[in-house]
């Protein structure tokens, strides 16, 4: 949170909320998605979430002891990172995947950069990128929802679109299926209603603002409407927004305080960039899904965006 002081000038408004309070609220907001995941993908996904959180907390504790820093394990940030790492995994990965992923998120993406508030990249997304590039075999194998016992492998809608150019009815899905999470996907990304409940909760508490998620989703939808169809303006914006990790990414990961711009103007630029890059990666990239890479790339631009969009100094007239 030190970064905030460098950019904005006085006067500062003090609020009662603490980092720790915010973190726990975000975790609470993400809880419905965990319940929905357990319901769709079975108890195993709950185990994966637990392993992920445990690994994150243990890694954080060990590193903090080694670095002889103030104990910050209970501020919830490690728990949140662990939770998000698990949400970005396919539901049937072996248990060591979340363990290694959370270790990477905390040790390399967060602590190696100096700890909470100093990381350039969202740790959970960095871990996802690490896992996806390292073990593509596990990270691209999805199971059909409601098939816990026999865990039928199934491709995600985005994969089907990219590899075989299938339409939604050909996949045997409807928009309602996509919305309710009745499709193959990562643990935490499929249950859109559960994610939206959490998002509204955070919006009401004013922990996140609508700028980044709304602009992100609108940009992505608009570009898809324009270019992804057979003719200009014939694309399917709803499909693009409801599939992949758009809702999870836009509301819970692109809005991470540390790795997103500070000013409203900057956040709009950030949102447009995320939407644009997601579209580009999905359409031309090597992977069917681009949300996490888009957010990571935009994370790298945040310092530049912040420099280009400084807040107006109090009392200064243009």
């Amino acid at each position: 949170m030190n970064e905030r002081l460098i950019v904005s000038t006085s006067p500062h408004i003090h609020k009662k909320e603490t980092i720790s309070w915010i973190m726990w609220m975000v975790i609470l907001a993400l809880a419905p998605a965990a319940i929905a995941a357990t319901f769709t993908f079975g108890l195993y996904s709950l185990q994966l979430i637990t392993i992920s959180i445990l690994s994150a907390v243990i890694t954080e504790s060990v590193i903090i002891v080694l670095r002889r820093r103030r104990i910050t394990i209970f501020d919830g940030s490690a728990v949140l990172t662990g939770l998000l790492v698990a949400y970005n995994l396919p539901p049937q990965v072996p248990p060591w995947i979340p363990a290694v992923g959370s270790f990477f998120a905390i040790a390399i993406a967060k602590q190696a950069f100096g700890g909470l508030g100093r990381n350039i990249f969202n740790p959970a997304l960095a871990a996802r990128a690490f896992l996806l590039i390292s073990w593509p075999k596990y990270m691209t194998q999805f199971t059909a929802p409601f098939s816990q016992a026999d865990s039928v492998t199934s491709a995600t809608p985005l994969y089907l679109l990219k590899e075989s150019n299938m339409s939604l009815p050909e996949m045997g899905l409807s928009y309602l299926d996509l919305f309710l999470g009745n499709r193959a996907g990562c643990i935490g990304e499929v249950a859109v209603p559960a994610l939206l409940i959490g998002a509204v909760f955070l919006l009401v508490l004013r922990i996140i603002s609508l700028h980044i998620p709304l602009i992100f989703i609108l940009t992505l939808g608009f570009l898809n409407w324009l270019f992804s169809g057979n003719s200009i303006g014939g694309g399917d914006p709803l499909f693009a927004v409801l599939t992949g990790g758009v809702i999870l990414g836009a509301f819970f990961m692109a809005t991470d305080y540390v790795t997103s711009p500070l000013t409203r103007k900057g956040q709009i630029v950030f949102g447009i960039g995320c939407g644009l890059l997601t579209f580009v990666i999905r359409k031309w990239g090597g992977y069917p899904e681009g949300v996490s890479f888009a957010i990571l790339i935009m994370n790298a631009f945040v310092p530049l965006i912040d420099r280009a969009t400084p807040p107006r100094v109090y009392g200064k007239i243009k």
């Binding site: 390399i108 590039i133 390292s134 073990w135």
Partner: peptide, 22 residues
């Protein structure tokens, strides 16, 4: 052991070098 493909790619090189310098 499931080898981590990223380690033989460019990011793995940069991370390893960084950690060794540290």
């Amino acid at each position: 052991f499931n080898p981590a493909g990223i380690m033989v790619l460019a990011p793995g090189a940069l991370m390893t070098l960084g950690i060794l310098i540290a």
